[in-house]
């Protein structure tokens, strides 16, 4: 049985989708990821879809679900590496991909996640942190 591997790296979970997802595989990934977030207390999920050539409304919904579900568990989701043709198709299809952040590549996605989490922590600690000027709008 196929399975999409989830890698743990510090407070983050990394997923690279290398195959064309059929429905069961996508649903399994959704379930596995949410379980993993809850088990590891991860603060961020990075999903690399640079090898995915087709995202239809079902796939879009799964990605959105992952975002919303992990948000409930206090983790942010960022989707990276979307192909231009996929982005154009999603816009035409009318699929906004809500609930997740997007970034160009893995590196930028990691930066984004770190930023988001740091922001959260600062809010908890208070704004008198030294690094706060990096994070102003």
């Amino acid at each position: 049985m196929d399975k999409i591997p989830i890698l743990r790296m510090g407070q983050f979970l990394l997923v690279t989708i290398q195959v064309d997802l059929y429905d069961r595989l996508a649903l399994d990934l959704e379930a596995d990821l949410v379980k993993m977030v809850s088990k590891t207390g991860a603060r961020g999920i990075l999903i690399d879809i640079s090898a995915v050539s087709i995202v239809d409304s079902f796939m879009g919904r799964i990605i959105g679900n992952i975002g919303v579900m992990s948000k409930l568990l206090d983790a942010e989701t960022v989707v990276v590496g979307m192909q231009p043709a996929v982005a154009i198709t999603l816009v035409e299809l009318g699929l906004p991909l809500k609930g997740v952040y997007t970034a160009l590549n893995v590196e930028k996605g990691m930066d984004l996640l770190k930023n988001k989490i740091q922001l959260d922590e600062e809010e908890e600690i208070g704004p008198d942190d030294d690094n706060s000027n990096d994070l102003t709008e």
Partner: peptide, 9 residues
């Protein structure tokens, strides 16, 4: 490629 992607989607 874009039209291909649209069609397959």
């Amino acid at each position: 490629l874009v039209n291909q992607t649209k069609l397959i989607t």
